[in-house]
Computed example of a mutant assay.
Amino acid sequence: MLLDTASLYFRAYFGVPESVRAPDGTPVNAVRGLLDFIARLVQDHRPSALVACMDADWRPAWRVELIPSYKAHRVARETAAGPDEEVVPDTLAPQVPVIEQVLDALGIARAEAPGYEADDVIGTLATAATDPVDIVTGDRDLFQLVDDARGVRVLYPVKGVGTLAAFDAAALRERYGVDGPGYATLAVLRGDPSDGLPGVPGVGEKTAARLLAAHGDLPGILAAVEDPRSGITPAQRRRLREAIPYLAVAPTVVRVARDVPLPELDATLPGAPRDARRTAELAERWGLGGSLERVLDALARAAH
């Protein structure tokens, strides 16, 4: 099981009241919410291995170089040296180091890579896996990794993580009319305002799916643009031609990397905390209470 950790702790932050605080009054709603997510996931799915994938760089320079608008609206402050700072709620940012400390004390593996997003870490681990993989994320971009032949599916939170929509190839085709690889092209054509991807004007999700169904892939669509017999409407033909500079670079930006250099990691699901003393200290310092107890109980049960 691969966790898109930032996606999940953002959901936890907005789903758990900020009145959930540590003894000193510091909000810990994202920390406790994420722990509750993990407890439920372990309880319901009993993964043999679990990796919390992190964003070492949420807006990699190599993606921005190709499409400067990539996540530009999320930049809080541009820095002359080092990565841009992301807009993060004031009371969430201090919780992220606590989340990392708790995961490390528990012995839940964390993985990140300089210059890459969590999506790329997930893509690399999913590609290298020899066992079936569940990816837990609220980011539809990772639908492109769905692969029935390799047992890779996406668990998409619908309500908390108690209600998850499982996306295999059949579910993707039913919902979007494409398979995993086709979803990346659909995302390129449709665009995504939340990521600063303009897409092709006038080509929404359904039109993109129809173009892919008729012409197979992006090269097939672009070939059809130059074929007067292809059935592409004059308006679509014009818009696709005008979008060729964007379409030349967008696939590289949207496509999840699958060859990220990662350090060796032990992803085995721990049956007990790796550092029990540190876990207890963090529980007391941050008032993690029942949330941490539920994780510990779920880990112990999954180990037997």
Rank of each mutant, 00 (worst) to 15 (best):
T5I: 04
T5P: 07
A6C: 01
S7W: 04
L8I: 09
L8C: 10
F10V: 07
F14N: 12
P17F: 06
R21F: 00
D24K: 04
G25F: 10
N29V: 12
A30G: 03
A30Y: 14
V31H: 08
G33R: 08
I38T: 03
V42P: 06
Q43F: 00
Q43N: 03
A49L: 00
L50S: 00
L50V: 00
V51K: 00
C53K: 04
L66R: 15
R77P: 00
R77E: 15
T79V: 01
T79M: 03
E85P: 02
V88Q: 11
P89W: 13
D90E: 15
A93M: 05
I99P: 07
V102A: 05
L103K: 02
L106H: 13
I108M: 05
E112P: 03
E112G: 07
E112I: 02
P114T: 13
P114C: 13
A118K: 02
V121Q: 01
I122A: 04
A129E: 11
T130K: 10
T130S: 12
V133C: 11
D134K: 12
V136E: 02
Q144S: 10
V146D: 12
V152A: 11
Y156N: 01
P157S: 00
T163D: 13
F167L: 05
F167N: 04
F167Y: 15
A171W: 14
P181M: 06
A184Q: 13
A187N: 10
V188E: 10
V188Q: 09
R190P: 07
G191N: 08
D192W: 09
D192R: 09
P193K: 11
S194E: 07
D195P: 11
G199H: 08
V200K: 02
G204F: 11
K206F: 00
A209M: 11
L211N: 13
L211M: 12
L211E: 09
L211A: 04
A213C: 02
A213S: 11
A214R: 14
H215I: 06
D217K: 07
V225K: 11
P228G: 01
S230T: 11
I232W: 12
Q236H: 13
Q236S: 01
R238M: 06
R239Q: 14
R239K: 14
P245W: 02
A250M: 10
P251N: 07
P251G: 08
V254G: 01
R258V: 08
V260L: 06
P261C: 06
L262D: 03
E264F: 08
T268H: 14
T268D: 05
G271T: 08
R274W: 12
T279C: 15
A280Y: 12
L282G: 03
R285T: 06
W286L: 05
L288C: 04
G289M: 05
S291V: 05
E293P: 10
E293G: 15
V295E: 15
L296C: 15
L296W: 15
R301E: 14
A303I: 08
